[in-house]
């Protein structure tokens, strides 16, 4: 079967768009892992909760942008409370305890969502509805907008981490928690703030994803799994690596979908995960340790 150039270009755009949404989720996950050594298995459920909060806000106000903001802020505050009450007491303990705790949180959030919003999918109305001609396709402008917004949010996070006062606190704490505390940085507060930022970004991706795939109580697991693959492939705790890995994995899946069905194409990301763990466990996008 011959694959046309236009098909490859379309899949390239699809891969980049999907990659940027995934990058938004994975950035939060990797930031949280980098600073707290916590693999947050409930991260995808924060995406799901964000999507539902967005859907409810749009239903009440009809304003997508307000919904994006409200979801990010509400879930960021929720994330802060969650971290302070359930994860902070576990920091420094066996990693298995935090894995089990976040897994438990994930189950609770899913059950809450099904109780609160029911099992059927909620679709969020996109803020722009037009399409443009892209080879033989009518490609939605909203997908492009999603990638642009995700890039803008990640860019803002980068600038905050690079130049902001609290960005230096976060980077210092990520590198050496003990020394950061000795320099007067309130590390427990920094942990909570980082968890809140990660949760807010997850919620924003939930709202952005809403018009594309709808929001159900079980989308969290898929997001967690994909973000986890990306974080491992990009290098645990490496923000830049996670962003590159998000695009890399999404492009791999998009190209694989040219040959096999999209459901089968997902397998390539697991293959990438296994190969990374076997041959470059520190991640593809970090220098090899000497």
């Amino acid at each position: 079967m011959a694959i046309g150039l236009e098909q490859i270009l379309i899949q390239t755009v699809n891969g980049i768009v999907n990659g940027m949404i995934l990058a938004l989720v994975a950035s939060g996950l990797t930031l949280i892992f980098g600073i707290m050594d916590v693999v947050n298995f409930a991260h995808g459920d924060l995406v799901m909760l964000g999507g539902f909060v967005g859907a409810v806000t749009i239903a009440a106000t009809g304003n997508f942008w307000l919904a994006l903001l409200v979801a990010a802020v509400v879930i960021a505050v929720f994330g802060a409370v969650l971290q302070a009450t359930t994860l902070r007491p576990l920091i420094g303990r066996d990693p298995l305890t935090t894995i089990l705790a976040t897994f438990g949180i994930s189950l609770v959030l899913q059950k809450y969502a099904i109780w609160q919003w029911g099992p059927s999918a909620r679709r969020i109305q996109e803020p722009i509805t037009g399409n443009f001609s892209f080879f033989y396709l009518q490609y939605p402008w909203y997908r492009i907008l999603t990638a642009v917004l995700a890039t803008a949010i990640i860019g803002a996070l980068y600038l905050f981490l690079r130049y902001g006062k609290y960005g230096i606190w976060i980077r210092a704490t990520t590198q050496d928690r003990v020394m950061a505390q000795a320099m007067g940085i309130p590390v427990p507060l920094v942990h909570t703030a980082v968890f809140a930022i990660g949760a807010g970004m997850a919620a924003a991706s939930g709202v952005l994803f809403g018009p594309l795939g709808g929001v159900t109580q079980n989308i969290g697991l898929d997001f967690t799994l994909r973000a986890f693959i990306v974080v491992v492939v990009g290098g645990m705790g490496n923000l830049g690596g996670s962003i590159l890995a998000s695009i890399f994995i999404s492009l791999l899946e998009a190209y694989a979908a040219l040959i096999v069905s999209p459901a089968q194409a997902v397998i390539v990301s697991f293959v990438a995960l296994i190969l990374t763990l076997l041959f470059r466990p520190t991640g593809l996008f970090v220098p090899t340790p000497k």
Binding site: W169, R171, A172, Q175
Partner: peptide
């Protein structure tokens, strides 16, 4: 225990931003 990935200036700022 220098913050190895922070610049010299940023290392100093960790104590200054009080």
């Amino acid at each position: 225990r220098i913050f190895r990935l922070l610049t010299v200036m940023e290392n100093l700022r960790t104590g200054l931003e009080r």
